[in-house]
Design a protein around this nucleic acid. Structure first.
Lengths: 272, 272
DNA sequence: TGCATCTCTGTACGACGTACACAATACAAC
DNA sequence: GTTGTATTGTGTACGTCGTACAGAGATGCA
């Protein structure tokens, strides 16, 4: 089961669908019983509730009361359907107006919005967007998110780099959280139960003296959060690191601009 | 095609296999024609060359000159085989001795080792390790990597947090790179060709005035690296951010220990 | 020499995306 | 009206997957 990927279908047809440029409105033949939006909505509902695995053409069709092949009159195939689902999810994201706030508040808002996206649509975190769906949803999202990084003295390329770094982080967290949820569901065990099953078995085969640091730190981490891995903690900890990293990068640029002999570190945001 | 996941099989059998505690050596019945290692090796070779999609029980069996069902006498199922593949890959990783070097060199070495892992085995980057394969390979890897973060004044939990943050970053980069490779392969188009196909189509539907920043920054980023997304650049840029972030965290701890009125920023590593 | 136990094989099932042929429908041209 | 044609919706079918199950043959122990 490899990773799903956006933009795996025919580019021309995909773009036409994404921007809804395919409605001559009066056509021959029977009236259409459904619509592209209805198909996308049904598929999204299934994905939200049961994961992307459950989104099969058969299942979406069943949900809409038609036979599987009917969907192919609305959508060229499953690949294009996924693009439509994701761009629609982007389009629906809330975009808080943070003009006038300090930059680290703006960046945190972007992170939160993406976190919310992946909480509402966990499947979205598992999709590879190496070639993103170039629809109105993505464009609006990108435009909005860039505004959070504007006016900080970063170059255009640096703005894109930073945004990529931030979004990669949030998506990686969400992906791990989604994977953990899927594992919990499939195994009918939560993480704690899973560890309770594995710990005694592991203890039998593992020589503690061979891995002193691993055993000590692993135990400490396991005790700190209830389990081996706590997605919420990883997000909170990591977001703070991202902000620290941006602070350093922005300050670097400022001190270079001012060509001061010593670096200044009064970046307007005491990201503590 | 959802994401593959480790530890999806039976925990007891998986651990026995991982630690190779299942060899009574003299058994009845015909001599075994293969071995667990042979199966794992064949599967890994296929995954390295053609991706995890191509690793099917039928294909692995064919490579070994047996019928598919034969594999099930060596391995309980495909889930357990994946655990064995990944732990073996961990076990084979090079672990450079960086004792005596400054911490940011040690951390960079860990990042490079993981980057190398994902270059040799791109499929490994696509596997979810929310529940990791608790084998000797992972233990050795974890033990080694923790040593890079030792002696920096971080708590055990912070060491684990930092390592998770670093590894999440490297894996996310590698995953994107692997996805891009897979897209290139499946579409028989490289990224540049893909953009050349999409750009004119997009220009027809997109109102440039509606997304001024997106168009400007997107163009700048696309021009800077040859394509829309450059995995190498994302890694280089991101690793520097990770180091900056760790610098800030370590300094924070030091200034708190020293309870100095002002923060000191002489962390021993000028991570420029 | 039996016999329990193990290896390896062949067949089969239900899932998937979707190609293809075809029936039913509604508008356009006459 | 009537006919032609484009379009929608349906049923069947193919090749893919992991693996359950039954059985055939080989081997070591009693």
């Amino acid at each position: 089961m490899p990773t799903e990927r956006t933009s795996a279908g025919d580019p021309a047809r995909t773009l036409q669908l994404l921007w809804r440029h395919s409605t001559p409105d009066r056509r021959r033949g029977p009236r259409r019983g459904l619509s592209v939006d209805a198909v996308v909505e049904a598929a999204t509902a299934i994905a939200d509730a049961e994961g992307l695995d459950s989104v099969t053409m058969r299942r979406v069709a069943q949900e809409l009361g038609v036979v599987p092949m009917t969907l192919y009159t609305y959508v060229p195939g499953k690949a294009e359907l996924l693009d439509l689902m994701l761009d629609a999810a982007y389009a629906r994201m809330s975009r808080t107006d943070t003009t006038g706030q300090v930059w680290h508040r703006r960046v945190m808002a972007v992170a939160e919005e993406n976190k919310a996206l992946f909480e509402r649509h966990p499947w979205a975190a598992t999709v590879s967007t190496a070639r993103p769906p170039l629809g109105p949803g993505l464009m609006a999202k990108y435009e909005h998110e860039l505004s959070a990084l504007d006016g900080l003295g970063l170059s255009d390329v640096e703005m894109d780099d930073c945004l990529t770094y931030l979004l990669t982080f949030v998506q990686a967290c969400a992906r791990t959280a989604a994977d953990a949820r899927a594992a919990r569901h499939d195994s009918a065990m939560n993480d704690q139960q899973w560890w309770e099953v594995n710990a005694p078995l592991l203890a039998r085969v593992l020589d503690e003296n061979a891995y002193p640091r691993a055993v000590r730190v692993g135990a400490a981490a396991g005790a700190a959060h209830g389990s081996a891995y706590d997605p919420d903690h990883a997000y909170t900890f990591g977001l703070q690191r991202v902000l620290d990293a941006f602070t350093a990068l922005i300050d670097e640029g400022r001190s270079a601009d001012a060509d001061a002999p010593a670096r200044k570190r009064d970046a307007g945001a005491d990201a503590s």
